[in-house]
Structures are given as C-alpha cells and as structure tokens.
Write a protein that binds this DNA or RNA. Structure first.
Lengths: 240, 240
DNA sequence: GTAGTATGAATGAAAG
DNA sequence: CTTTCATTCATACTAC
C-alpha cells in the first residue's frame, strides 16, 4: 500500500527534493551564536510542501465525506441519497482552485503604466531580450521578474484580441447553445450510471471540497496511523 | 500527535510564523539581482512537518481503501464495482467538474505521475514507439492519445529547461538570515503598491495520490485526526 | 461574506 | 527544439 507522491520530481538533479533539505552547515556564524541547525527550503519547495499538504487534507476530507455519505446510505435511516450524487455534489461544487498559495505579482501603477505604454507602441511580441530589458527597467519601480513581464504581455495580447471578438457577437444562438450544453452536462452529472460521466474526469486535477464536519465518523485509530510512520521514509523523496 | 500548524491561513502573516520561516533579505537590493528567498526551519519543525504529512498520507490511503471496499460492497455487480473503482480514481484524480465542455486533454494525476516518472528517468525524447507505449499504458487511467503524450514531453522538456536557467539554486548567503530570524515580513501585506511578492515559482506541483490496494484496515475512532483538518483550510477561497 | 470581475499564472497544443 | 497561442485556473479586488 503506499501512496505515491512526488514532491519535486522536477529536474534540478534532485538536489533539493522533498524534505531533503540541506542543513545549514555551520551557518558561518563565527560570532559564537549557538550553532542552531536549521533546514533551508526555497520558496518553491515551501510552496510545494504546502500544496502537498493541502491536497492531502482535501482528499481526506473528501474521502471522509464520502464515507459518511456511504455509510449513511447503508443505514436505512439515511436513505434517499445516492452515492453518485453526493460524489458529484461534493466535487462539483467549487470552481477550480489549487490551494491559495503565494501571492501573485501585481504591477505597481507605475509599472502598469509603462507596460501599457510599451504595449501600445505596437511592437507586438516582445522577444526575450526585450522582455529582459523591460523587466530590468521596471525593476526600478518595484518587484518584478522577466516572467512577470512575459506573462503580462502574453495575457494582454490575448485579452486584447478576445475583447475585439466579443462586441460584434450578439449571437444569441451561441449563448443559448452554451446554456443548453451546460444543462445537459448538469444532467449527466446526476447520472452516475452514465459512463461518460466517469470518463470525463480530466481537466481539473484539483481536488476541491466543501468543508464538512466529520465528527461522528469512525475511522482509523490514530495509534495505528502513527505506527505506520516508519513506512514513509519521510525524509526523502518518497517514491514507491 | 497534533499537528497544529496552518499553512494556508491566507493571513500571510501567520503563514510565516508558522514554521517560523524567515525570509531572506529583501530584494530591493540595489544591484537589482533578485534576492534569494529561503525558508528556514529547525529540526523539530521539520519533524513535525514530516509527521503531519505522514498522517495525512496514511489517512488518505486508508480512507481510499475503505471507500473502495464500501462501494464495491454496495454494488457487487460488475458495473457497481467498476463505478466504485472509478470513483476512487476520480477522487484521487480530481474534483473535476464542468465535465464535457473540455476539449483540451488534461492528464489525471495518475497519468501525470507516471509521466513524470518516465520523464525523470531521463531518457530524453521518447521516440515514436516509446510514445505509443506510454500512451497505451496511460490509457488505462483515462483518456489519452499519443499526441498528448508527445506534446506533454515536448512541453515538459522545454519548460524544464527554461526554468533551469532561472534558479541558480544554491545554498548560500542564507546564514546571515538564519539569525536575523525575525524578519517578519508581514509588513508588506499592507502596501499593495510595493508588493514584495514573489514570483517565478514555477515548480510543477506534482502532487499525486496513487490509489493503492490497502490492507483491510479497520476504521475506528479518529475524530481527533479529522479535527486537524480544520487547521488546513485547504483549497477554496473561503478562507473562512 | 457572497458574487462577479480583472488579471497573473499554468499548460496543452500548435506554429515556426 | 523553441516560441507563441488559446484556454483555463486561481486569486485579488470590488460591489452589493
């Protein structure tokens, strides 16, 4: 049994995987301060960690909820609800979201102004060099990275284009169709026996869930769980 | 046991305290070079973290198994069982919704995990045959085509490379901060015009959850465990 | 605090 | 392979 999770299967020669953090050796503090040993992680690792935990937490909740629902089902008293529905409900409810993690970059008014200006100059796709240039310049006005700049232009362009297409689109039919489509899908979701329903689980690998109070549930006893700690090999990338 | 830390309290100022992370020097360095952000934790914290994760992992596994067992039980018929399994899969796989409206393929976590694994094995560009092979294998876990696989590797490689140019991940200059340890950067939260935000976090969040056949564990009391769920407030923007 | 919108970022697919 | 596009996700922000 075992779950398989990879934290950082990213390349990077695996030098800094999972919790395999480097020890901050000696810390160069000759000042005689107690040689406090600490682990160091980069933001990325931190983020990954958070996400992983979040995912687990979420999955646990979902499973717990499912279990509750199912057992309730088996219990004559709580009849009426189908597993299929519940499943769908609990999962369909929210829009996608990976856990809220870090803050995202936001251009300062000044940066934005400059960006818009550059954008308006028309020189469409700013090549890599250009991006670097811009990033460097904007860095003087606040935090920013090349990636930010790159994304900004990417989005700006895409949205600019999209906007142009919408105005003339008074297409009622499309709207109606879209709605109809939604409705159909809605129905599908309700039909757990419809194989299509099951097959389509792609798109969103995010696990969402509605928070629920799972108190009266009976599950694994913690002692047992702890007992299994050893089987995880937590300190290293656990890949089983 | 008791895992008490909240990662995601969204209150960004708690978030930091939590692990008593400290942020590396600011990045307003005059030299324009982005400062390297790192988090620092003590061994104890690390241990706690490890436990937390282990607990979740274990719980998830067991719950998953339990659910599987239950659903299979409920509907011993072929279809029923199948549905049960699929449910499990989808569960781990996603909280997919908006089904059917998608056209773009999205790997299920399972598939992703396998892909990553293959990718990590290093064997660069998988040739046609290899792709076919992989596609076939992954098809067992959801819809997928050879093109998907091909594209995936193509993108994965490209982005992996691009990313590597940015992060000169190296253990250094953090020592100093190790002491500074009180770099509560919650101050920044108020100043939106000068976001000391972070960016270029690109790590692919390879968070997976492999279904596993688990031993028939008994699920008993664990209200305590679930209690902890609350401390995560995983996804949802509810931040409650 | 709930809902809707703007937008930064992630990523599959396609063009170059 | 590299770069760009299109679509979608997730979050910050605003308004009720």
């Amino acid at each position: 049994m075992l779950m398989e999770w990879v934290w950082e299967s990213q390349e990077q020669n695996h030098q800094e995987e999972l919790l395999q953090l480097q020890i901050d050796h000696d810390q160069q503090n000759p000042d005689g301060v107690a040689g406090l040993y600490v682990k160091v992680m980069t933001d990325d690792q931190m983020e990954l960690l958070r996400r992983q935990i979040s995912v687990y937490a979420t999955i646990c909740e979902q499973l717990a909820e499912m279990h509750k629902a199912i057992t309730a089902l088996q219990d004559p008293s709580g009849v009426g609800t189908r597993v299929g529905n519940l499943y769908c409900d609990s999962l369909m409810v929210s829009g996608g979201h990976k856990m809220g993690s870090r803050q995202r970059w936001t251009p300062t008014p000044l940066q934005l102004q400059i960006l818009e200006q550059i954008f308006d100059e028309g020189n469409g796709t700013p090549n890599k060099l250009k991006v670097k240039e811009i990033a460097t310049e904007l860095a003087q006005h606040g935090q920013i990275s090349e990636t930010n700049v790159y994304n900004w232009f990417q989005n700006r362009r895409a949205r600019s284009k999209k906007k142009q297409l919408i105005p003339p689109t008074n297409n009622v039919e499309l709207e109606a169709e879209a709605e109809a489509q939604v409705r159909v899908e809605s129905l599908k979701e309700q039909d757990s026996s419809n194989p299509e329903n099951i097959q389509l689980h792609d798109e969103n690998e995010n696990v969402y869930f509605l928070r629920t109070e799972i108190d009266d549930t009976e599950f694994t006893d913690s002692a047992a769980i702890f007992h299994q700690f050893g089987s995880f090999e937590p300190y290293t990338k656990t890949k089983m």
